[in-house]
Amino acid sequence: MKKQLLWGLLLAVGCPLVAQEVAYVKSDQITRWKNSDSDTLYVLNFWASWCAPCIAELPAFERITREYAGKPVKVILVSTDFRRDVEKKVKPFVRRKKLKSRVVFLDETTPNKWIDLVSPEWTGAIPATLIVCRRRGVERFFEKQLDFEALENAVAAGLNAPLR
């Protein structure tokens, strides 16, 4: 009986069916990732659940999360969906796709005030991706759909950059 309980507990803890929480973040979080003192290479992907080219490139980001597990790489999928769609569209999407990369919702209304925080190069089209690690002097921005090869090249190059 005790053993069964233990197994049950273990299953519950390790159960992948427990979907991740999609946190609401403000634009200052972007600045925090960009200015972070850690050795983590942040891969910030700006997407929306209805955006076809965004969905098409999602597997590449998920693959980075899988293949770089244990390395200082963190993929964060930043949703720019409408706020009213977060509960009924974004969260179900994240569950359905069983996304392993961290997903957050950027809870902001004035893009003109935060787009430049991500990158002055960004005109505002999604998908867009920023690969950044201040301590490695890495900051690469892409305003286009990425395939796995292009993404991995950028991630590998970022990781190879020496820590300061």
């Binding site: 080219p53 720019t80 893009p111 003109n112 430049d116 005109t123 089209a125 999604i126 305003e143 759909q145």
Partner: peptide
Amino acid sequence: ETKAIGCTIK
């Protein structure tokens, strides 16, 4: 000049 989020031109 201002910026906005939009769908990439296909």
